[in-house]
Amino acid sequence: MTLAGDTLTISVTVNGETTELTVETRRMLSDVIRDDLGLTGTHLGCEHGVCGACTILLDGRPARSCLMLAAQADGSEITTIEGLASTDGTMHPVQQAMHDSHGFQCAFCASGFMLTTVALLAAEPKPSRERIRRELSGNLCRCTGYQSIIDGVETAVALIDTEGSDR
């Protein structure tokens, strides 16, 4: 059996926009996001599910797009890093907080960390530092030693809290 020529049509909602895509059945979701949709903010660090750089939100939950076939995403709602900031360029509070805290250096891992953080704060708006460490332990960063990223999550908590009370 040769799969090389096999294709499949799927429907996905990416950053709020619903698209139909014809993809080879063997292709990974990460490849389709990067190559077919041109959303190159999703990065590939290890392509075997350990580093977490390719993390996206799949129906609101963090998922490794390098371990999922694109076919498996049929009918789901996907958020990538490009979907976080407002259309006018205003950063999402998590992005703003990472900026304020000098969260990242080379930032190759940043999208994965920030999308994991968005999911964490949706589930637990005021996590303890220990909880933050645990939740982010599936994402690797080689530059920062993590402290500034964890500080960034704490800053995001404060920022979202202030924004909430302003409203």
Binding site: R34, D35, L39, T40, G41, T42, H43, L44, T80, I81, E82, L84, A85, G89, M91, Q95, M98, H99, D100, H102, G103, F104, A107, F108, A110, S111, M114
Partner: peptide, 23 residues
């Protein structure tokens, strides 16, 4: 001063241009 990074506007929004992004 701990001036905030000018790199961040592009790098934190997915607009960095790493080599894999070039086709």
């Amino acid at each position: 001063q701990s001036v905030k990074r000018v790199e961040d506007q592009r790098l934190l929004t997915g607009n960095g241009r790493y080599v894999a992004d070039i086709n």
